[in-house]
């Protein structure tokens, strides 16, 4: 089936099999391998992208359903090489380790911050409850999103919260 859509601001036309999942279309046809696959059962959220501004797990959607839509993947976030504030937050606040869940986490955070400028910690947690991370324990991911929210409001991000915790015996 022929589809036309916008991916990261770029017009794309393609001929896809009806059974092709959006995530496979992005990774294999479009070479956008920043969108990851962790479980194939729409549980882990590693494949999260924005479809017309809404966060979607791209393994739950066929490519043909994206016909006419505007898709943003992690590759489309940086602006002329300048990291998106959410990307910057994850870097500055150690919000990643292996990094495999990170693109999906980032897209969920971007989706949240488009809707809420000043989310509470509880709202942040609920916004990424559908994204699994096996490395970090999630704390720094919350800090990363708080950093990004502050940046996007034009405020100074809160300082990192780790310096005072060490003691020497």
């Amino acid at each position: 089936m022929k589809i036309s859509l916008t991916i990261n601001g770029r017009e794309v036309s393609a001929d896809v099999e009806p059974r092709t999942l959006l995530v496979h279309f992005l990774r294999e046809d479009q070479g956008l391998t920043g969108t990851h696959i962790g479980c194939e059962t729409s549980y882990c959220g590693a494949c999260t992208v924005l479809v017309d501004g809404k966060t979607v797990k791209s393994c739950t959607m066929f490519a043909v359903q994206a016909d006419g839509a505007s898709i943003t993947t992690v590759e489309g976030l940086a602006d002329n090489g300048q990291l998106h504030p959410v990307q910057e937050g994850f870097w500055e606040r150690h919000g990643l380790q292996c990094g495999y869940c990170t693109p999906g986490m980032i897209m969920s955070a971007v989706g949240l911050l488009q809707e809420k400028q000043s989310p509470s910690e509880d709202e942040i947690r609920h916004a990424i409850e559908g994204n699994l991370c096996r490395c970090t324990g999630y704390h720094n991911i919350v800090r990363a999103i708080e950093y990004a929210a502050a940046k996007m409001r034009g405020e100074e991000p809160p300082p990192p919260d780790w310096e005072e915790e060490e003691v020497s015996v």
């Binding site: 990774r27 070479g31 956008l32 391998t33 920043g34 969108t35 990851h36 696959i37 993947t73 992690v74 590759e75 976030l77 940086a78 990291l83 990307q87 994850f90 870097w91 500055e92 150690h94 990643l96 990094g99 495999y100 990170t102 693109p103 980032i106 990192p160 780790w162």
Partner: peptide, 23 residues
Amino acid sequence: ESTIRPDGVPKLRGEFMYAQDMH
């Protein structure tokens, strides 16, 4: 020092090459 990880940027930009991404 709590230096920031150098592989952070490619991982954050979706450019880091995982075994799954090789072609």
